[in-house]
Amino acid sequence: MANIKLSFEEMWEKIIACDRKYDGLFFTAVKTTRIYCRPSCRSKKPKKINVEFYDEIQAVEKAGFRACKRCQPETDVSPSIRLVQNVVAFLVHHYRERLVLQDIADHVGVSPFYLERIFKQETSETPRTYLEKIRVDKAAYLLKSTELTNLEICYETGFQSSSNFYKAFRSLTQCSPSEYRKLNKE
């Protein structure tokens, strides 16, 4: 890993700002707790005099520090990315079910507020709009490959009402399900 040549003060500013752009470029070690973190860690900030910075994970671990359980700096993927991956996998496997944010949050073990915030931060959309896209993708596939009616496809893909189905489908494909079927029949 390239040494980024930031001063102590610059690195301190990055951890106070929880700047994710610097994750992996340096690590913050807290002398009093013997724990090290990513620059983006949201844990309570230590006193400045108790902080040391390391450019490489091997160096911080060799110095006797252990990884923070919250930000998991020893992994390649941040905990928020892992959370989003778990949510997406859950949505793909349960898209047919009637899901509310609380169900999804319960599955991944976080609060609905936290889930929505992290998911939007990482994907620029909410779990609900992501689920809608999965359902529309499944509906488009069924329109092309089956003889099911639009209403059967609506319920098969987890939509709770035909009006929601038509609205979501048109919004994402710029045509109605019937028009889509005519244009894409195999």
Rank of each mutant, 00 (worst) to 15 (best):
G64Q: 06
G64D: 06
G64P: 03
F65L: 03
F65A: 02
R66F: 08
A67H: 05
C68E: 02
K69W: 07
K69D: 10
R70A: 09
C71S: 04
Q72V: 06
P73W: 01
E74D: 13
E74I: 05
E74T: 09
T75W: 09
T75F: 09
T75D: 09
T75K: 10
D76A: 10
D76M: 08
V77I: 11
V77G: 04
S80L: 08
S80Q: 11
S80C: 08
S80Y: 09
I81F: 08
R82G: 07
R82P: 00
L83F: 01
L83N: 02
Q85C: 00
Q85A: 13
N86L: 10
N86P: 00
N86F: 05
N86R: 15
V87K: 00
A89C: 07
L91F: 01
L91W: 01
L91K: 00
L91S: 03
L91V: 02
V92L: 12
V92K: 14
H93S: 14
H93C: 12
H94S: 13
H94R: 14
H94T: 14
Y95N: 05
Y95L: 05
Y95R: 04
R96H: 13
R96V: 15
R98H: 14
L99M: 09
L99F: 13
L101D: 11
L101G: 07
D103C: 08
D103L: 03
D103Y: 08
I104E: 00
A105T: 03
A105E: 05
A105V: 06
D106W: 01
H107S: 15
H107G: 02
G109T: 07
V110L: 03
P112F: 06
P112L: 03
P112A: 07
P112T: 06
F113K: 14
F113C: 11
F113N: 13
Y114S: 07
L115A: 10
L115H: 08
R117W: 13
R117V: 13
K120N: 14
K120S: 14
K120D: 08
Q121P: 00
T123D: 01
S124C: 10
E125R: 15
E125I: 12
E125Q: 14
T126W: 04
T126N: 08
T126C: 04
P127G: 03
P127S: 05
R128Q: 11
T129H: 10
Y130F: 13
Y130H: 15
L131G: 05
L131R: 12
K133M: 07
K133T: 11
K133D: 10
I134E: 05
I134T: 00
R135H: 06
R135S: 01
R135Y: 04
V136G: 01
V136Y: 02
D137L: 12
K138C: 09
K138Y: 09
